[in-house]
Design a binder for these strands. Structure first.
Lengths: 217, 217
DNA sequence: ATAATAGTGTCTATGAGACAGTATGCG
DNA sequence: CGCATACTGTCTCATAGACACTATTAT
C-alpha cells in the first residue's frame, strides 16, 4: 500500500523583454544529470521550510537571482518516469515576469538571458516547459494586463504599446490601443513626463496594481 | 542536501450537469484523516505504473468509477504542510467533464453527486479545489466548447443552449446563440431528428471532436 | 520653420443583442 | 385549426480597425 514517492521540484520560466524580444533566464547545470546543459532556474521543494510550492519557487528565485518577481503564476505540472533519468519526478512550473531594468540592477550569478526564439538544447523537458509558458503569456496578453509586468512601474503609453506588440507579434494602431486601455480603466496617469527628443510623453502606472483579466470581468 | 519528499496525490473534480444544475462526484472517506467526511475522488501517484500524473488520475477514475472522462484538464497544484495533517502534501488537481447520461449507465460504487452550490463540509482543502474548478469551467465556457462535453455525443441546439445557460448562469437569446455557434464552425449536423411533442429538432455533434478555444484562435 | 513623436477625432465595417417573424410537428 | 417548439431574418447599438488630424517639444 506504500508507494515510493516521486521527486518534487519547482521550475520557473523567468521572462523579460529586451529590445522587443522575449528572453528567458537560463543557467548551466553544474552537476549530473545534464551537466553543462542549460536549464531553467529551479530546485527541490524543502518540506521543512516551504509553506507551499509557490513559496518554494520564490525561495529558489531569491537565492539564485536575488529578487522577487512582481508577477508569478503557476503554469502546469510536468511529470513522469523519464524526464529525470534518476527517478520518477514531478515539476511544478511557474511563469515569472520581470522588467528588464530590474534585472540589470540585480547581480545575476551565472544566469544569462536567451531569446525564446533561439534556445539552445535544454536539460530535462525544459524546452516543453518554456513552450507552454510562452504560449500562456501570448494567449493571455490580448485580454489582460500581463504585459504591464514586463515594464517598470511607470511607463509611457508608447512603451506599453510596444510591449504588447512584441508579445503578440503584431502591429497595433496607436489610437485604437489607447482607446482600449481607456475602456479597460487600468491606467493611472502620473503628473510626470518623459522629456525626450520631442514632445514629452506622460508617465502612467497600472491602476490598483492588480491583474486585469477581461475573460473574467 | 537530501530533503524528505512530500506526499503526492491526484484529485479530480468530476463535473456533470443534471436538471440544469452543476454537480460533482463525492465519496465518503473510509479512513483517517477526515474519516467519514466527503472528499473528491483521488489517490496517490503510483510511480511503478503511472507514466504521468494524468495517467494517475485516469487510473483512479477508472478504478473508482469505471469510466474515462471525455474531457480532462489539469487544474492546479495545491500544496503545503497543513492540508493533510499527516505530512507535507501536494495534490495535482484535475477537472473532468462527464455527460449525466453516461454516469447513470455506469455503476457508481459509493459515489454520489452533489450540487456545487450546496456542498457539505469537505475533507482536506477540497472545497478550495472545487471552487477553483467551477471558476475555471465558468470562466472558459463563454469562449470555448467546454460545455459540449457535458452533453451526450449527439444533442439538439436547444439542449446545447440550455447547457451554456446553466453553466454561465444567464439567459441566452436563441437566434444569437445559433449565429455564434455558426461563426465558431464547431457544429456538425447529423441526418437525424428528435421526434418530440412538436417540430422535430435536428441532432448535432461537435465537429472534429476537439476543444475550440476562442482565446487562442 | 521643420522634423519627430505624443495624443485626438471620426468614418466604417463587423459583431452582439433584441425582437419579430416563419416552419413544422402534435393534438 | 391552434399550440408548442424549431428555426430564420433583420434592426440597432456597441466596439474594433483604419486613417487623418492636432499638439508640443527639439533643433
Amino acid at each position: 500500500m506504500d508507494y515510493p514517492l516521486p521527486l518534487v521540484t519547482v521550475d520557473a520560466v523567468l521572462l523579460t523583454l529586451r529590445e522587443s524580444r522575449l528572453e528567458i533566464a537560463l543557467q548551466p547545470r553544474d552537476r549530473a544529470p545534464f551537466k553543462g546543459a542549460m536549464a531553467l532556474p529551479g530546485g527541490v521543494v524543502h518540506v521543512d521550510e516551504d509553506p507551499s510550492t509557490e513559496a518554494s519557487i520564490r525561495r529558489v528565485l531569491r537565492d539564485k537571482t536575488g529578487f522577487e518577481p512582481r508577477y508569478l503564476e503557476q503554469l502546469q505540472v510536468f511529470s513522469g518516469p523519464d524526464r529525470d533519468p534518476r527517478k520518477w519526478s514531478l515539476s511544478v512550473s511557474y511563469v515569472a515576469l520581470v522588467p528588464a531594468a530590474e534585472l540589470e540592477a540585480t547581480p545575476q550569478a551565472g544566469f544569462q538571458f536567451v531569446n525564446v526564439d533561439a534556445l539552445p538544447p535544454l536539460a530535462f523537458d525544459h524546452a516543453d516547459i518554456v513552450a507552454a509558458a510562452v504560449a500562456r503569456l501570448r494567449g493571455k496578453s490580448s485580454y489582460s494586463t500581463l504585459p504591464f509586468f514586463l515594464l517598470p512601474e511607470r511607463f509611457t503609453l508608447t512603451e506599453l504599446q510596444h510591449t504588447y506588440e512584441a508579445i503578440l507579434q503584431t502591429r497595433l494602431e496607436k489610437s485604437n490601443f489607447r482607446r482600449k486601455m481607456e475602456a479597460w480603466d487600468v491606467l493611472q496617469a502620473t503628473e510626470d513626463y518623459v522629456l525626450g527628443a520631442q514632445r514629452p510623453a506622460r508617465l502612467y502606472r497600472l491602476k490598483d496594481f492588480t491583474l486585469f483579466d477581461r475573460s473574467v470581468g
